[in-house]
Design a protein around this nucleic acid. Structure first.
Lengths: 217, 217, 217, 217
DNA sequence: TATGAATGAGTGTTCATTCAT
DNA sequence: TATGAATGAACACTCATTCAT
């Protein structure tokens, strides 16, 4: 009995979160109104306050929820990959694929939250930081195990990696998603590869995206 | 007599624009209120409407004004540089230096406007597009005149160039400007160089930032 | 429980409508502010928007509501009257009596809405037209069934009928309601009678119109 | 020198008055803004205050000015007519003809000012009263000199006369001026004639409008 | 638990009016 | 005399939030 109630409660929360992601993405975080979000979630505006203390709280919960989902996905994959470069590719392309399936979230995170004053909100910022640190972490692994490293500074490399990713996503979203986002990502990675992995180790002709894929199977 | 009045009028417009840039940067474009902007400009809210038709008009005017200033600056420099790669460095670093002197504008453009749904506003979008096209144009020049080109696709290269730049600016702004922005930019350019200029042509040890500087003298 | 809430809701709507009629009449439709109307209705300005989408919507609703009430009243009476002239008298005097009991509405309709550019508002205009058409309809009946008709053109007759009515109401309202409005109306009808009904056909009884006619001989 | 200045001053005042009549008629008295009126008059908004103390003062001046013009016209005609009924016709049709040539004024007076709360403004009201009294005066003359009078009460007759006139003008203005206003007026007068002039004195077949015209020549 | 009803604070915008020049 | 510049007060309207039920 109680369990059923709890279940429904959890379900409602999820629906609000989903609706928020959608509406935030469509209208922008600031232009989105609670009225619209609640309508999209099929919940009365006052009920909303039983699940979140605030509009701010909702804003903070949206990244948390989406990242949880994404990390669950990507971590399952990363477990099976050892090579740092391949791990990087998996993470990079995994992000892009997640966004392809979930463009509303892409909009919220890459257009609205990330590079934005919103990121000053403590909780939101933490989510952003964590994501960035994961990339830096992978790059650091690569540098550590590489015989010779070119970039050296993992932060500088991360700048290129994250920058290209956000740019790709932003244009993809803003220009009506003209072509395959993750395919573009693979090309960008191919370009970046020599900067990240020691030049001496020649890739046997494969596009990184494919290699990553191949390994996973 | 009339001239003085006109002068003061122009001055007031400028003050509103400046205040808008500041407040947009601080609060975000949507959260910024006319009340706050006008207060910052030392102008009554009704006076505002003698200078701009709308809040939207103001939003459109802010990028226009700042880009005019930036382009005036950078074009004077670019006139003296022929080599595509050096032109790219000048443009890239010029942008970062402009932002170092004018962080409020950096906030507005790189955190608020660029990767944002705001860019749907016709006029604002045009400004963004023009900026991006200028980078692509320089890259295309380089590809055209280069003996061998690596990246080939100027859009893909632009993704790396623009992406790294926005990322650099965003982190600089969001993390309290810990270190020299344009110095970071120079490092990023050094990393990117082999992707843009034919590998055969070896730079005799120089960091691109310096070379560009050197030429300008 | 729900019913009570609905009841109260309906009641509030009515109170706003009543207050609007009053304030529109006192200040004129354009000078009337929502602030004042809401204050008169004992409702907060934002609550207003739970009941009407707009000030325009309110403006349209005021005539609709009042006409509904008036028509309900007058139609009950008209059902019992067959003779066109008597029907005309009933309609004419019924209007005046309604206004005597409800002068605020008289003000709004006869001083503000009717002869006014406001009548361009689609919905408002429709209400005005309907009212006028009812008079014309009655006159047409009279012409159709009369042996001899004097005026012939029902629109011309309606001009006299409606014109005298509005004039009566307007002066009554503007000059502090010095005397019995419907008594004045009866006198005007008596004057108009020979223009409307064939002179040869003598009325066998005592409706005000009839008495007036009797006196005239 | 001074005279020239005075001349120009007077001219300016006139232009403002003209513009006000036009704009009041087009937008309605309340929706009309000083900005628009001044623009139409080719005068700066601050200059306006050299000619009128207030917007209210302007509102009061508009009827005064237009009535002065109208009275000058109509009095020249009335001087040549002795018969009360013909005088009435001349006045009635003269008004309609003035409006045909000057619909903006018709709008202001018959749709905006007359039957409206605006008429509470002292000065405006006086103008309205004067006009009505002139009609009553003519009717009184007719009653005085007539052997037998039908209506008896000049106010009641005036109700029909003025009422029909305003109604005619209002519909003419509101329904896009479908047909000749003064021709309609002549028909209405023909209908009203037996109520005003003793029935024994038969008009030798003439439409009142024509007779009035004929006499004037 | 859930919600319909209600609201205060604040938004962008307009406009009659004033004042220094 | 004439005006460009400036403003206070008010407007219609929105929205996150609260509370009685």
């Amino acid at each position: 009995m109680l369990k059923i109630a709890q279940e429904r409660s959890r379900e409602r929360r999820r629906r609000i979160l989903l609706a928020a992601t959608k509406v935030f993405g469509e209208k922008g975080v600031h232009a989105a109104t609670l009225t619209e979000i609640c309508a999209a979630a099929g919940v009365s505006r006052s009920t909303f306050y039983d699940y979140f203390t605030d509009k701010t709280a909702l804003l903070a919960a949206v990244p948390r929820a989406n990242f949880e989902e994404f990390y669950a996905e990507i971590d399952a994959i990363l477990e099976t990959i050892a090579e740092p470069w391949d791990r990087l590719c998996a993470f990079y392309l995994g992000t892009l694929r997640y966004i392809e399936r979930n463009p509303a979230w892409g909009r919220v995170f890459f257009l609205e939250i990330w590079p934005s004053v919103l990121a000053s909100e403590r909780e939101v910022r933490d989510a952003v930081d964590l994501y960035a640190r994961r990339i830096v972490g992978i790059l650091r692994q690569g540098i550590a195990c590489g015989k010779r490293s070119r970039g050296g500074d993992p932060y500088l490399l991360a700048t290129l990696v994250l920058g290209s990713m956000t740019h790709l996503v932003a244009t993809w979203l803003l220009y009506g998603r003209p072509r395959d986002l993750s395919a573009q990502g693979a090309k960008a990675l191919a370009l970046l590869r020599p900067l990240v992995v020691p030049a001496a180790e020649p890739p046997p002709g494969a596009v990184p995206g494919r290699r990553a894929k191949a390994r996973r199977r």
